[in-house]
């Protein structure tokens, strides 16, 4: 197990959002998280990446407890969190933002080679390299955000709703590109509303509901898509 979250409780101020979440990610695995809005998916990612302190429980990465570690120490360990609908750096060019993505010590010396790999996955970014991030379209911005994350040469990449608000065609393109990322051997945690997308990408899925893991799906053949949708919307409504 590369990442192991155990009985994690956390929230904002006095409001607890996660009431004891346990899940794990194996090395090289792609894991999907889904569930209704406001039930703790983003909060979980924020706790893992060190933006939010954990009130209780452990988060182990390579067996080391990183709960309550600083955001920069967690990045140095190799976990990169690509935030939701990231505005990125509006007044930086795509190239500058990507360069900065390699801020992590382990990644900085290799930034030129990594940049080529990122451009191979997202050719659109190569075209837009000298444009300000502010001027990118929604899809391009998401590509840039993932590209910036990849520049850190992550061992575990967490994507928060990468396809949110995108047109179906761009969504498909992005899904294919995330698939390419998964093939590089980087472990993935993908949060998305689009269960079809997750089913296409991930080996295992977790349904997060009311701040807890409501369902773990280990074998995709185990459950039909219809069942998930039924359960998902049945309980969310």
């Amino acid at each position: 197990m590369q990442l192991e979250v155990e009985s994690l409780r956390t929230g904002y101020g006095r409001i607890e959002v996660l009431h004891g979440v346990s899940l794990f990610v194996n090395a090289g695995e792609a894991v999907g998280l889904f569930g209704p809005n406001g039930h703790g998916k983003t909060t979980l990612l924020r706790a893992i990446s060190g933006l939010l302190p954990a009130a209780q429980g452990t988060i182990r990465f390579d067996g080391r407890n990183i709960a309550n570690g600083s955001a920069d120490a967690i990045v140095e360990a190799g976990i990169i969190h690509v935030a939701q609908a990231s505005a990125l750096f509006p007044r930086m060019t795509v190239f500058e933002a990507l360069t900065l993505g390699a801020y992590r010590k382990a990644a900085w010396p290799h930034r030129k080679a990594t940049l080529e790999k990122v451009f191979a996955i997202f050719p659109r970014l190569a075209e837009r390299r000298s444009q300000n991030c502010r001027t990118l379209s929604g899809g391009e911005r998401q590509m840039a955000a993932i590209g910036v994350g990849l520049m850190a040469m992550p061992r575990l990449l967490m994507l928060d709703e990468p396809t949110l608000g995108l047109a179906p065609k761009i969504r498909q393109e992005l899904a294919r590109q995330i698939g390419l990322v998964a093939q590089t051997g980087t472990s993935l945690v993908v949060v998305d509303q689009d269960v079809d997308l997750l089913l296409g990408l991930c080996e295992r899925l977790y349904l997060i509901e009311n701040g807890m893991v409501a369902l773990e799906i280990n074998d995709r053949s185990e459950l039909q898509h219809q069942d998930i949708v039924q359960r998902y919307f049945g309980t969310a409504a």
Binding site: L51, V75, E76, I80, H81, S86, A87, F89, L100, Y103
Partner: peptide
Amino acid sequence: QNDEAARLLGIR
């Protein structure tokens, strides 16, 4: 420009 995004890149 965006201090949370900066923190997520490991910037101290």
